[in-house]
Every structure is written in structure tokens, then in C-alpha cells.
Write a protein that binds this DNA or RNA. Structure first.
Lengths: 325, 325
DNA sequence: TTGAAAGCGTTACCAA
DNA sequence: TTGGTAACGCTTTCAA
């Protein structure tokens, strides 16, 4: 592969001039410009990014840290991040952390050694020490705000209130809230919204904890439905648990939405594939990913940022697991 | 951040010696070793990968090109690739190609300029010119074999035969095969398997083309079911279309599996979330991703490869969309 | 407007 | 066993 020296020689100018041309900075005569353009074309020259990085201490690599790309929420997010990054000339490195601090740290170290330009992170370990001394920009997505790290997230309280109120409107009188892990900020917020919506209303409620795992959610739903057959509404803190609940309920012979109504949270594609389609509080996943990426790139390139925290609003999508008379 | 020079100074040796230590090649006295270890610890030194790459013309970056990470098949694959890569010290760059030759080419160029170590590719554009002159190792996954490029894939003919035969065993007499795009190797193979299983049997069959898109599959299923209400079995060429078919059938009041039985292909997680659970010909997605990655790494590091084509066998998973009396 | 040359942090060859 | 040093391909300062 041709290098900058070859181009310089071919164009009859110095390496420095070619470099200036490449980076569009510094002065350049039209003559030189033309010769260089021709040389580049003739030699099919492409700048060596590694050499460039070594010199500038910068790459166009963005590390995307997610718990598990296999969880239906993250592919949609990753897609948005990737699209946006590509449009700005950045490239993303996929890191599955399994919410495991050591893996996160390992990745952060590996990428730091590569002069990664920045990180987009979805984790609830954001206060962990390994995030303290990262020297490149970070944007947090979806989870836990650490006061110093810019974050984009959904208004979870508001969203949960919205979803729960709709369940109420549909006549549910005996509602269980399948909440996410205690201590996980977004899960706590969703419970808060649920509680706000139900307090003072003429309904029975209960809250049970349920991780974002399909299998476990199935078990928990079965237990609930067995113990409290009077349940006629479920507000689930994630689409995954909502869909698990739907499946179990149907297997137990409950008619959804006639006997039992279900509202999920997330707005994952999966929600429209099950039947009946899942009514859910949809986060604007694509927008979240895109915003986070734009923010990060701004930080990388400008080192400035207007608003450190952006919240994207959630929207109720009504499908078949609820019925309004 | 400390560099190799600092370490050398601290350890009282030359940079060359430190380099030898780092790469575990060349001779080294125990004395030197000790001093260097101490220096590294003291300075918290981490080698600069960019400088290293510039010198060696090698990175530990692997480009993973998939059509769309949002398609449920690919997150599982990506996970396997990432796990395996990480275990070997490699890092993966995610590229969504949308099956678009220009995007693929763009990515290939961007990564080539970074000294990417190799590519794992899922595409049906493998014969496209931009794959001709790639200088780094490539492994193709799941799709189209180009004679020169090592490939890991499922035995699609065999898998489809397996699935179709099971449908027959379950008593389906009037079967439609929702095949994937014509010309796409794996889709053609699956039809072949379907045809093998049904030929000579006492069943009515028809084959309709259907892309791997949920929405379109819904439309097509509706049309089929309306036009041919006598259909009592569907063999779908992907889980996505199978699940679309399931949803539509249920919406049209067909009882699955009583009136209509469905078998999918892929073995995506989604299959166990719908109800009834989807009977499907499961590819061992994780194994495919892991094998491809191991093969690629072998090519990168040894430049040798025993078997250029590995095929992973598919397995029938029986769930609720079929009934055996 | 241009070019020489000193880095950037490693590796690897060659001598010692 | 060790160290000096050229080389990897680019950027950037400084002088011309």
C-alpha cells in the first residue's frame, strides 16, 4: 500500500504538504493541491489510521458497553449508535459486560490502550472506581446518573405513570407491578410511577421484584397468578417480563386481555410479534442511542456540551393486551 | 501515561530489553526480568497498542459484518463471536451492512486502514468485488460459500428435511413452505430439504417466497390463509416468518396447533417467548459464531487452517406449534 | 506557501 | 544477554 511519502514523491511536493492537504489545514497552492489529488488517485492512497492515531493520540473508535446484546433492548440501541457513529466517521467496538465490573474494566483498559475516542455505557456500575479515572469522554445511557457523567435516559417515572394509568382506565382493579431489580435506578423510578398512579385510586396493588430475565419472570408470574387468582392487571417493568407473563397466563388458561390485562415497558420490537400484541410504554430507543452518540461525538470533537442530561419521553403504544370498552 | 522508555529507565535497562520482556521473545536475564516487572508495576505501565500496531502492522481488532443486528438471529451470533474473541484477546467492531455493498465496502476500507486483523462476514454479497482484494483473513458465516473463503454454516438441506418430516409425522396434509429470498443460498437449500421431504408423500404442497421481515411475512401469511384455507401446516424458512405466521393465524381465528401447525427455522430465543412456543429447526447459533471466530483467529495467528468448511448440524426443537398424537 | 525534521511508542535487526 | 537505532506512517512546529 502506498504511503504518504509515495504520494509526496509522485506529486513532487513534501510529505508535510500532503499532510496539510489531507487534513485541510494550513496553506496550499492550487498547483500543489492538484498534483496531490492526482497522485492520490494514481496510487489509490488511503491514509494509515494507525500512524495517524499514534501521532494525534486519537482514534475514531467508540466503545459501546452493554450488559448483553442478546437482551432485546440492546440491539435496537446498538443499531442507533452504530448508524449515528458511522455517519460521523466513527466506528463502534461492541462490549458485552454482563454487568460485571471486571469485564468492564478489562474492556476499558483494552480500549484505552488503543486510544479509543470515547465510551457509551449502559451499566449500573457507573460509580465503580474504574469509571473515575477514564481520560476520554463518556456518555451514560438508560441507567444511573453519576452527577459528572452526561446521561440520556427516559423519564421512567412519567412513563410508568402513563402505563399504569392506562391500565386503570381499562378497568383493572387488582394490579400487580412486576418491578425490576431493587436498587437499579430505572427500576426504582418505574415503581415510583406505578405507585403515583395507583395511590388514592380504588384498586388493590402489590409489587413483586422480578429481574429482566424471561425464564425467571415466567416462574414469578406463575407463582403470582396461582397465589392471587384475582389479579386482573399486570404492569411489568420491562417488555421481557411482560411477555413472559403473557405466555404463562395464556398457558394457565387466562384470557388476555379479557381476564387479565398486561402493560409492558420498553417498546421492544418483540412486543408486536406476540399475540395479542403487547401494550407497552415505549422508550424511543433509537432516539436515545442516536442522541447519546451525538453527545459523545460533540464531547470528543468540541470538548463542550450544552446540556449534560437529556431525557427522552416515553410513549404509550396500545396493542392487544389491554382492552378499552 | 508511562511509556516503554520510562520503564526502561526505571528498570535500568534498554527499551529493547523491555520490549523483549513484553513480547516474551529473545533472551532475558532473571535480573532484568525482575527489574522490569517491578518498574511496570511501579509505573502502572500499559503498552500502547497503537504504537505496537504501527510497528507490527497488526491489531487485535476483528470486523464483524452483519446485515442488521436488529434481526434476532444476529445478536446471538454477535454474542458468541464477542465472547470467543475476548477470550483470545481480540475485540470486535460491529458493522451493520444492510446487505448493502457500498456500506460493506466502506467498512472494509475503514477497517483496513486500521490494520484490522480479520473479518467475520454474514452477507450474500460475498462474490462482490470488494471481497476479492482483501489482504486479511475472512471467514464467512451462515451464508454463501465462495470457494476460496472458509465458511461455517448449518446443513440447511438436512435441517429443512428434518423439520418438514416432523410436520408430516404430525399429520399435516396441506403444507405451504414460506421460503426465503430466491437466490439466497441458504434459502434455496431449505426449500430443497422441504421438497425432498415432501416428494412422494401423500400431501399437497406449495412454496411461496417471503423475505426475512416480520411485517411482510404477516401480509403474505394472511394472503395464503385467505386463499387456501385448507392449509394445515406451514414450514417457514425462518423463525421470524414462522412467528409472523403464528400471529396472523391466531388473529384469523385459526387454532395453532389444532387447525394449523407451524415449524420455523433458526432457533432464535424469540421462539420460546411466543405462545404456543415455536417448534423449530434450531441452528446452533452460538456454536457457529464461536467456531467462525476460532477459525479466523487461527488464520490470523497461524496462517493455516485444517478444514476450510465446517457445517454445524441443526436440531429439531419441539414446542407447541405442532402436535403429535 | 513550502519543506526539514522531530516526535508519537513500539518492534526488531544487528553489533557488541 | 543486552543495547543502539532504524523503521513503522503520519502530524506539526519552525524556519525559510
Amino acid at each position: 500500500m502506498a504511503n504518504i511519502k509515495d504520494v509526496a514523491k509522485h506529486a513532487g511536493v513534501s510529505v508535510a504538504t500532503v499532510s496539510r492537504f489531507l487534513n485541510k489545514n494550513g496553506y496550499l497552492s492550487d498547483d500543489a493541491k492538484e498534483n496531490i489529488e492526482e497522485a492520490i488517485a494514481a496510487l489509490n492512497y488511503r491514509p494509515n489510521q494507525v500512524a495517524r492515531s499514534l501521532s494525534t493520540k486519537q482514534t475514531n473508535l467508540i466503545g459501546l458497553i452493554v450488559p448483553d446484546i442478546t437482551n432485546p433492548f440492546f440491539p435496537e440501541l446498538a443499531r442507533a449508535v452504530e448508524d449515528t457513529a458511522l455517519a460521523h466517521g466513527y466506528t463502534i467496538v461492541l462490549c458485552n459486560s454482563d454487568e460485571n465490573a471486571e469485564k468492564e474494566e478489562l474492556y476499558i483498559n483494552m480500549l484505552t490502550q488503543k486510544y479509543v475516542a470515547g465510551f457509551i455505557v449502559t451499566t449500573n456500575l457507573l460509580k465503580a472506581p474504574h469509571y473515575e479515572d477514564i481520560s476520554v469522554p463518556i456518555v451514560a445511557l438508560d441507567r444511573a446518573i453519576n452527577s459528572t457523567i452526561p446521561t440520556v435516559s427516559t423519564d421512567n417515572v412519567e412513563g410508568a405513570r402513563l402505563g399504569t394509568e392506562y391500565l386503570l382506565t381499562c378497568g383493572a382493579k387488582n394490579i400487580v407491578c412486576m418491578r425490576g431489580p431493587v436498587g437499579l435506578g430505572l427500576a426504582d423510578d418505574r415503581v415510583k410511577g406505578f405507585l403515583q398512579a395507583t395511590s388514592g385510586e380504588d384498586v388493590e396493588t402489590q409489587v413483586v421484584e422480578c429481574p429482566f430475565s424471561f425464564e425467571i419472570a415466567e416462574k414469578i408470574t406463575e407463582k403470582i397468578l396461582l397465589e392471587s387468582p384475582e389479579i386482573d392487571g399486570i404492569f411489568a417493568s420491562s417488555d421481557t417480563s411482560a411477555i413472559a407473563a403473557l405466555k404463562v397466563a395464556q398457558a394457565m388458561g387466562r384470557k388476555v386481555p379479557n381476564d387479565l390485562q398486561i402493560v409492558g415497558f420498553d417498546g421492544v420490537q418483540l412486543g408486536k410479534m406476540v399475540s395479542p400484541g403487547l401494550t407497552t410504554v415505549a422508550q424511543n430507543i433509537y432516539k436515545m442511542g442516536a442522541s447519546a452518540t451525538k453527545m459523545l461525538i460533540k464531547m470528543i470533537e468540541d470538548d463542550s456540551l450544552q446540556e449534560k442530561n437529556v431525557t427522552v419521553s416515553a410513549e404509550l403504544i396500545v396493542r392487544g393486551t389491554t382492552r378499552k370498552d
